[in-house]
Design a protein around this nucleic acid. Structure first.
Length: 135
DNA sequence: GCCAACGTTGGC
DNA sequence: GCCAACGTTGGC
């Protein structure tokens, strides 16, 4: 199983809204690197949900409910989406500041490649963030 | 609101 | 195929 992190601006699509919806397709990715990551997501993979711009913190855990398929919001076959469902909220959100300050997390994609909106996480990184979020 | 980082586009 | 110009993202 793989681990991922996706970003969303809460103004556009927040964790709260996601939980109300119960399920969503992750659209709007228009970057090849992010798209390639979407294509590698498999049903059952776990995904951290990060709020960019406002909050700047990891707020919850989601799960891939359906692997990639054509983005229904465009006819351009370059772009795909995956279906996500919420799993649980972190007890305390893990801020970007905490991540940068953590010896084990300071090299993750979120810090090194700030603009990428869908990225892979190592299991250790994923587990560490969960640990911080539940302590 | 500014700016750094970085991806994309287009001229040559 | 290089590189300058430009656009977008996201932290501050």
């Amino acid at each position: 199983m793989n681990h991922w992190l996706v970003k969303s601006e809460p103004v556009k699509y927040s964790w709260e809204k996601f939980n109300q919806d119960g399920r969503t397709f992750w659209d709007g990715v228009r970057n090849y690197q992010a798209r390639n990551n979407l294509r590698e997501m498999k049903e059952g993979d776990l995904v951290l949900f990060y709020h960019s711009n406002e909050g700047k913190e990891v707020v919850g855990i989601a799960k891939v409910a359906r692997g990639f398929y054509q983005d229904p919001t465009t006819t351009d076959s370059n772009w795909v989406v995956v279906d996500l469902v919420p799993v649980e909220s972190l007890k305390t959100p893990v801020t970007l500041e905490q991540i940068k300050a953590d010896e084990r997390l300071k090299d993750i994609g979120l810090v090194r490649q700030g603009r990428l909106s869908v990225m892979a996480l190592k299991r250790e990184e994923f587990d560490r963030i969960i640990e911080l979020g539940n302590s």
